[in-house]
Simulated scan of single mutants.
Amino acid sequence: MDKETNKILMELAERILREWEECPLFKDRSSKTIYESYNGQISALGVSILMIGLKPTIAVYYQDEPKRGEAHRRCLLAVIAKMMGYTDLELFVREILTAVEERNKTEIINCSVALKQVIRTYKLD
C-alpha cells in the first residue's frame, strides 16, 4: 500500500471512530478508551487472511458473538465494512463468503493496517 492510500484510509478510519456514536470499539467513549485486545486482534486479521485465506478469517471473526461490555472481533469487521462503504455488516460478510474470487482481499488488509495505526493513537485499556 502506498503512503497516499494509507493516509486516506487512516483519515477514514479516524472519521468513522469519531463520528459513529455506537462504535463498539470504545470501552469508554467519553475518555476515548478502546479495549486493549483490539490492538492485537486487528494486527492478527491481516496475518490470518494471508495465512488461512479471506473467507475462513472473515467467518472466524464474524462468528465471535458480541457480549455486552466485552471486546469481540466482529466489531473490527463492522468498522472495516464501514470503511469500505457498507452500511450493513451481514451484507459485507455475505458478499465475501459467497464470492467466487477473493477480490476484496487487498482492500480489507489495507483497511486493517490503517485501522491498526489509528487504534494505537487512542488510549487502550
Rank of each mutant, 00 (worst) to 15 (best):
N110C: 14
S31D: 00
R18S: 11
E95A: 06
K105R: 13
I49P: 06
K27A: 06
S48P: 08
I49Q: 12
R18C: 02
R29N: 01
S37I: 14
R74I: 08
A59T: 01
T33M: 04
V113L: 14
I58K: 03
R103H: 03
S30E: 10
V113K: 15
I52D: 06
D64Y: 15
E101L: 09
E22A: 02
C23K: 00
T87K: 14
A78L: 08
V60R: 11
V113R: 15
K32S: 09
C23T: 04
L77C: 10
V60H: 02
T106N: 11
I16F: 08
N104E: 02
F92I: 00
P66H: 04
V47I: 15
L25N: 01
V79G: 04
I58Q: 02
I96W: 11
D28P: 11
A71K: 04
G46W: 08
T98W: 04
G46M: 01
P56N: 01
V113Q: 15
E14A: 15
S48H: 04
M83H: 09
E90P: 00
G85V: 00
S30C: 07
A81K: 01
L45P: 11
C75P: 07
E90R: 07
R15Y: 14
K82Q: 08
L77M: 03
G85T: 00
S37F: 15
S31R: 09
T98Q: 13
P24D: 11
R29V: 06
V93M: 11
K67S: 12
T98R: 11
T106G: 12
F92E: 11
K82C: 09
H72L: 12
A81Q: 00
E22F: 03
I108C: 10
W20E: 06
E102T: 06
T87D: 14
L45W: 03
P66I: 09
V47N: 15
I42S: 05
Y61C: 09
N104L: 04
N39H: 15
D88P: 04
N39C: 14
I96K: 02
I42H: 01
E95C: 09
P56Q: 11
R29D: 06
I108M: 13
G85E: 02
C111N: 10
T98N: 13
L89I: 08
A59P: 02
E22V: 03
L77S: 07
I34P: 01
I96G: 04
R94M: 02
K55I: 02
C23P: 00
S31E: 00
